[in-house]
């Protein structure tokens, strides 16, 4: 998994431990049964969400311990929300909920326009106060970056500050990272793996197939 140095700024790649590689070896394998695919994807998503949450600021807070002693700790700050790109992005919602129980989740539906072959926004439903929130943009695969760029434009048009957006995905291609950061250099991409390239059909190579299809029984 060679990573060109010029694309790694503002990319938070999960530490490539053997344990993480082991998880990926299961979801990359084309013979993996769906139940395992879902289970091990969820485990990776959980790691991505934890990494994303770690980017959020905290403020100092004094609390009282059971010994009635004051302890100077920290408290989580700022409201967050998730925004998933339908359909594959929805697979990451549960992982987010596992860490933030009552998190609000917005949805954006983007599909390829059959006439222009370009991604087109079909539907968006976002929390009213999204401009005050930190946003976790959820889409498992960053290939060309087309839909992620469009979704991010929607968020920014709704008043979300770019530095408050974190784009979480399981697998990214260098082309996608470059395209995305050309548009939004200040947005952090949090990913679990970066593959060498896109193939001639713009699929991540070696990749893990169509995430949405493999996760959602089609």
């Amino acid at each position: 998994m060679s990573t060109p140095t010029d694309i790694t700024s503002n990319v938070l790649l999960l530490e490539q431990t053997n344990q993480l590689k082991g998880l990926y070896s299961i979801i990359r394998n084309k013979n993996t049964h769906r139940s395992d695919f879902v289970f091990y994807s969820d485990r990776i998503i959980r790691l991505l969400v934890e990494r994303g949450l770690d980017q959020l600021p905290v403020k100092q807070a004094d609390i009282t311990t059971p010994l009635d002693v004051t302890y100077s700790g920290v408290e989580f700050l700022g409201k967050i929300c998730g925004v998933s790109i339908v359909r594959a992005g929805e697979s990451m919602e549960q992982g987010l909920r596992d860490c933030c129980r009552s998190v609000r989740i917005g949805k954006i539906l983007i599909q390829r326009d059959e006439e222009t072959a370009l991604p087109k926004l079909f539907y968006e439903k976002l929390p009213e106060d999204i401009e005050d929130r930190y946003v976790f943009l959820l889409d498992p695969m960053l290939a060309t970056g087309g839909s992620a760029i469009l979704a991010t434009e929607v968020l920014i048009s709704r008043g979300v500050k770019p530095e408050r957006i974190f784009f979480l995905n399981l697998l990214a291609a260098p082309e996608g990272i470059k395209a995305y950061h050309d548009k939004f250099p200040e947005i952090k991409i949090i990913t679990g793996g970066i593959d060498p390239k896109l193939d001639e059909k713009k699929r991540i190579d070696p990749g893990l197939g169509d995430f949405g299809d493999r996760y959602y029984c089609i």
Binding site: S25, R28, P206, G209
Partner: peptide, 21 residues
């Protein structure tokens, strides 16, 4: 924990060398 090398095939029918527990 210990891991061992393994080669799998992705849905693109690409051979991929990685590790498993």
């Amino acid at each position: 924990h210990e891991f061992k090398p393994v080669t799998i095939e992705t849905p693109l029918n690409v051979q991929f060398r990685t590790v498993e527990p």
